[in-house]
Design a binder for these strands. Structure first.
Lengths: 329, 329
DNA sequence: GTGAAAGCGCTAACAC
DNA sequence: GTGTTAGCGCTTTCAC
């Protein structure tokens, strides 16, 4: 293994000079700098991460707790993780992927000085992890927006605004009876924050616009088709569908598309999902994009800023936007 | 921060005794052991990972290079990652998620002593990373099975055997004209190892069974339906479909199911995908499970064994198995 | 069965 | 602008 001492010797300077060349924390003459840099390159030196973290009391690693369980939208999770990892690297951080999604895992990483900060996804209201995080002494950011005391900074997509936007769009298209085909029942029941916020925005917007809106939990599996059929049969006057359900989306789009063709109905499907997912669904005209990678990147930016400046920003919600071919009413 | 010295003092023993209690590397009297353990608990001590890695020259971290790009099957990737992370924790390892999937990232992690070993997914034949890994001095395992020199141990699902199994199953159901609806064109063209192996097994089995088999690349997006329609129109005598394509599967299953219903054809769809994905597709009777989480776990076991025993196992392929309601012919 | 002490490779005062 | 050196918190000889 090549150490900083080897580099110093090769460059004919002291150890600290090499260290300062790397960190840029003090002025170095152009001449020594090049000499040191050459030595570093030719020896292929990279500093020992452990030694560095021991001496500097910081690891340049951020711990990420991602929900690897099923029932979540894998596309969204993957994209958020991608955003986090990519952005972290830009700030010079690496990502330690935590195994379990309990409070213990957070403590292990923090107390073992394995990470400088923590990024936690899929936090529910009253999640015990929030209290753990507060007591940890490590900066942390939640990806999501749990209800309650708001002790930890949060980054998320503005699902509530998305609910409003969806209703505005469907109403603009001429629909007066709307349905939200939402998350699977288990997500709804868990009161996962994003599901609740979407429903709230959707219903409030329906009321504000004076249209009828109903909300339907929908399994993300085989039963999605049956669920949609049931909704359509029992509420034949619904013409505007707003779908926020990964597994159900293709079925819903197909079912409704077929029904529109067969019965000549003027039905509309508006999806809430990542852009590329929307593009892969046949027959889907518009969608509201969930900027999943952007959420990951924003959360990472926030935590890096806290790490750098000690600033303590509160909540950041990314605004929704319509995508796709806008079919004028 | 509470250090090992604090624990030693609290327990009235020397630092080394505390260290040995934790590592179990030398005999400790029952009495001191309990005293030390109590001190550890009451002080809430966890050893500093960096200090440990500096002194012991090992990090207890495994680097994982996962393809976060699109075009891959996100369900499969997520499940493999889950398997890796979960199993690693069981062996006492944590996972560092590498940002980019190039050789540089592997070097950075290894040479910076951030990891003890590397796990690399989605390796292609002639992948430059293979040579990098060989020269790195860190143990590594590939998840996948690239062609060629085989310098690095590999773990994967036995896609070739899956091709055989699929044909056997479809033939047993009475089908004589088979089609493999395969990976997207970009994956086929890249000669991603798994796609090639599946095709090879499928075609060989068709020949061995004396049935006709054709292979069709299929985009994982909107065009999947059109592709399948084209295949069915141009080859109306195909009755057995073997689908290995995340995005296309629901469409294929639906299209073929409908056609079977409308035209009264005896068509069969056999899918190759993770179990839970198969269960979420309406109207799918059987499938061959891709044990994605098992692949991740097996790869992790292998690398941990190499780390522990220095053993150098070669290739491990997980066998395919039929799932679902076996509909007798 | 236990302790003392020499590093591990780096950072960051504190010199000059 | 550069060098010297005291730690950072742990593991692991070596000594008893």
């Amino acid at each position: 293994m090549v150490t900083i001492a080897d580099v110093a010797q090769a460059a004919g300077v002291s150890i600290s000079t090499v260290s300062y060349v790397m960190s840029g924390k003090r002025a170095i003459s152009q001449e020594t700098r090049t000499r040191v840099e050459k030595a570093i390159d030719s020896l292929g030196f990279s500093p020992h991460a452990g030694a560095r973290s021991l001496a500097s009391r910081s690891t340049n690693v951020i711990g990420l707790q991602a929900p690897l369980r099923t029932g979540v939208d894998v596309h969204v999770v993957m994209q958020i993780v991608t955003g986090v990892v990519t952005q972290a690297r830009k700030h010079g951080y690496d990502i330690l992927l935590l195994a379990s999604d309990d409070a213990k895992a957070l403590q292990r990483a923090a107390k073992g000085s394995m990470v400088d900060a923590l990024l936690v996804m899929d936090v529910e209201s009253d999640d015990p992890r929030i209290e753990t995080l507060s007591g940890l002494g490590h900066p942390s950011v939640l990806i999501g927006l749990p209800e309650g005391r708001r002790a930890i900074p949060c980054v998320d997509f503005d699902f509530e605004a998305a609910g409003w936007l969806a209703v505005d769009r469907l109403v603009a298209l001429g629909h007066r009876r709307l349905a939200l085909i939402g998350s699977p029942p288990e997500v709804m029941t868990r009161h996962t924050s994003y599901a609740d916020r979407l429903v709230r925005g959707f219903l409030a917007a329906c009321e504000a616009s004076g249209v009828t809106g109903s909300v339907h939990a929908c399994p993300s599996t085989t039963e999605a088709v049956a669920t949609v059929d049931a909704v359509m049969t029992e509420n034949p006057d619904i013409t505007g569908f707003f779908v926020h359900n990964e597994g159900a989306l293709p079925h819903v789009a197909a079912t409704i598309g077929r029904s529109a063709r067969q019965r000549g109905d003027d039905l509309a499907v508006l999806a809430l999902c990542p852009d590329d997912v929307a593009r892969s669904v046949p027959g889907l005209a518009d969608s509201i994009a969930v900027p999943a990678e952007g959420i990951g990147a924003a959360a990472t930016d926030m935590i890096c800023e806290i790490l750098a400046n000690g600033s303590q920003p509160a909540v950041r919600l990314l605004p929704p936007a319509l995508t796709g071919t806008p079919t004028a009413p």
